[in-house]
Nucleic acid binder design. Sequence first.
DNA 1: CTGTCTATCTATAAATC
DNA 2: TGATTTATAGATAGACA
Lengths: 237, 237
Amino acid sequence: MARTKVKLAFIVNDAARKTTYNKRKKSLLKKAYEISTLCGVQACAVIYGPYEAQPEVWPSPCEVQRVLSNFRAKPEVIQTKQMENQETFMNQRVLKAKDKLKKLRTDNKEKEMTVLFDQCIYAGKLVKNDMSVVDLNYLGWLIDHKLKDLGRRLESWDDCNNVQIQSQDQLQLVPLPPPPSTNEEMTMMNHGHVALPINNTDIIEREFFMNLMMNGDGDDTIPFGEVDPGVLPNLLP
Amino acid sequence: MARTKVKLAFIVNDAARKTTYNKRKKSLLKKAYEISTLCGVQACAVIYGPYEAQPEVWPSPCEVQRVLSNFRAKPEVIQTKQMENQETFMNQRVLKAKDKLKKLRTDNKEKEMTVLFDQCIYAGKLVKNDMSVVDLNYLGWLIDHKLKDLGRRLESWDDCNNVQIQSQDQLQLVPLPPPPSTNEEMTMMNHGHVALPINNTDIIEREFFMNLMMNGDGDDTIPFGEVDPGVLPNLLP
DNA sequence: CTGTCTATCTATAAATC
DNA sequence: TGATTTATAGATAGACA
């Protein structure tokens, strides 16, 4: 997270990996210490690296053993219940992630179209070579949207200045259908056109795991261990 | 760590503590995931909060059990050896932390004196009401230092411009003893004067644990669990 | 309580010593 | 190998919807 953004994937270079390992190990243990201190909770962390014979732990080996003993001492029924809870939790995450993805796609599409729109204004003409019907439709919706906004602004401006301009002098707004927003509609209508990067399914899949885990928006690569984006982590023994 | 810098101490406000807990829990688990992915190492994290019946874990309950089983399966001799190693490691940290602290005190003192010096230049006089003998001595050293630097600059300027000015025209440098730099000297000479904040022993003590843990420069408060700054964490069962 | 925003603070990748 | 420096990415406190 500095100088350059690093892809979240196994670091091939040995020296770089060791350097990163040492830095991040220190930081991870610090974070464990901080949440424990700030929130007054028990926490522990264990890291097995190839560089030390024994795992690095926080806060101390015996304390880790104590925390873990507590966990393992739970009746198996409760542990199973916990795992089920976690699975439910993960499923909720999936739903939320999907919603968020949909919203992101919509937002991105709108941004793309805004750029296109600005280019049209600047060039004075519409370069439509690599635009799909869907995109053209969306662009039309955006222009309609902007015209409506302009109309509103004119109206309030008129109100503020008590100008005599009446509705016949105002912009004629041509109603257009709202833009397609779901992935299914996009896909169905996208035949034979160059797809814009935002529709790339690979990128969407790579986001899956981290959205799941962190509810974040990272564009990271598939994580260590070749997680299949279509399969939930197996939470049962 | 935003908007305001937060003291690393138990958060008294319940709502704020829970908010912080949830945010930091998520981040901590993410960090565990990242180091595992980037460096290809086994890692696990466990957090016991008062908000969930079961601890939050990464990567999964069964995986945590597996990692911890590995640790507990080690012969007791090796675990003890590890603890001793860690104690040695901590002792080294103590020494490094002390060195760093000493350097920081020196640097801070110099910065304070620079500010004072600038104020003198600006006001045209020395306001010495709440200055100790030590500070005055240090200020003298600083001024001497600056005069020497001025002399050097004049010399090189003369060299560059082939000016005929000789040494009798240059500044007369009054040699002064070097400033005291150890805490003992400072304390011994600091009777009856208002101590500057940098000499406050509490601040120094509060830094102790984090310097120990992280080799960092934090000015954090004493951590959760009332760690005695003068005593190393007990690493034996 | 959950998500969003944003100003700040922290972590850290790279380069250098 | 480890410490320092620097510039950028990430984490997050506080306020708000």
